Simulated assay, not measured.
Amino acid sequence: MKRKPAGILLSMTVFIHCSVAYAQTGTLKNFPKESSPQEVGKRVANRFIASPHPNFGRPTPPKVISYPEVCAWYGALAFAKESRDKTLTTKLAERFEPLFGPDSGLVPKPDHVDHTVFGSVPLELYQQTKDPRYLKLGKEIADKQWGAPEGPHVKPEGLEHAKQGLTWQTRMWIDDMFMITAVQAQAYRATGRREYIDRAAKEMVVYLDSLQQPNGLFYHAPDVPFFWGRGDGWMAAGMSELLRSLPANSPNRHRIMEGYKKMMAALLKYQAADGMWRQLIDDPASWPETSGTGMFTFAMITGVKEGWLDAKVYGPAARKAWLALVTYIDSNGDVREVCEGTNKKNDRQYYLDRKRITGDMHGQAPLLWCAAALLR
């Protein structure tokens, strides 16, 4: 039998490798038009722009900008950047402009994790517009998280954490690991100063060591042994945002990556056949919930795109989740089946009985994160 020339063999090898690589990552491309990240992101972002400042479902305006709005605002900005939509960025900046003037009282004081995350929005606006007003405001907020404790939310345990080099806003709820890491990662991206992301990484390791369970998931809090979907979603999204920018020589990168991969492997086991995750992740009697599913989808998309996760395994899971999620968007651009704002409680029924809301920013935000991640 004749031997094929070496050049042909090499070409065939390259073709096979390229085909395999495309098959592995191609699962996160070529979506049907109505499910494409461009189409979905645009719909949800436009819905955000048209929405007044929300107040956790109440009909009255909020006293300050709420963290769910911050998360959706940041997601819309990320989508605008990745879709190269300058018009959208301008509209999102116009929404912010009154906060420098007549609506300045709506800017939250950075005295609690849920308030301090607001800084991630002006820091993103600075990166896209280079307007120094955004940098000044965002940096002041990020700095305050590790600054002198003040305000009604200062707790004795927070002061003890501060002595260990953590933020005085530490409270050991898994939600914190998005609220803290988002603003500190954004401050690092905007300034290039390592201190921001290094302290966020140190904080993340403490939360991983304290709250991650042997199965890879996280209790809502040390005294609440339930795997609440959105709570774990904050953790998954927070690790993804942090690892996306954490320098390779960070002494904490390996530990965070280890915790991230352990969580992703656990989530893979609990994904339902339709692609969704549930209100209580490990409880088959609980309902499919969109905000947690969106956050897990974002974490998996990011992991595949960054090369942290096996694309053959996690690519199809992320695609299935995304295609499931988009079916929950109604004709107004609102996401259905979103768990209402939730405190912690050591009671399974409490989590199962939470109201299911349509159009809540807790659910709008991760759809925008996913759309941006798919385009990134």
Rank of each mutant, 00 (worst) to 15 (best):
A6Q: 14
V14F: 11
Q24G: 05
T25V: 14
L28D: 07
K29G: 10
S35W: 11
S35Q: 15
S36M: 08
N46A: 12
R47W: 13
H53F: 14
F56G: 11
K63S: 13
V64K: 11
A72C: 10
A72Y: 07
W73E: 06
L77V: 08
F79Y: 14
L88F: 04
L99R: 00
F100S: 01
S104I: 05
V113L: 10
D131Q: 04
Y134G: 01
Y134F: 13
L137W: 08
A148T: 15
E150V: 14
E150T: 15
E150W: 15
H153Y: 15
K155L: 15
E157G: 00
E160R: 14
A162F: 10
L166Y: 09
R171I: 07
D176C: 01
M177A: 03
M177R: 04
Q186L: 06
Q186S: 12
Q186E: 11
E195K: 10
D198M: 02
R199G: 00
A201G: 02
M204V: 06
V205A: 05
Y207N: 02
A221P: 12
P222Y: 12
P222A: 14
P222V: 13
P225T: 11
D232Q: 11
G233K: 06
S240F: 01
L243N: 01
N249R: 07
N249C: 04
P251I: 01
H254T: 13
R255F: 01
R255D: 07
E258R: 06
M263F: 00
M264A: 05
L268D: 09
Y270R: 01
W277D: 04
I281A: 03
D282C: 09
A285R: 11
W287V: 10
P288I: 03
T293E: 00
T293V: 02
G294R: 07
G303E: 07
W308T: 06
L309M: 08
A311G: 07
K312V: 13
G315S: 07
A317H: 08
A318Y: 04
A321S: 13
W322N: 01
V326I: 12
T327M: 10
T327N: 14
I329H: 03
N332S: 15
N332G: 13
R336I: 01
N346Q: 12
R348K: 15
Y351K: 09
T358S: 08
G363L: 02
Q364A: 10
P366A: 02
L368E: 02
A371R: 00
A373L: 06
R376P: 02
R376F: 08
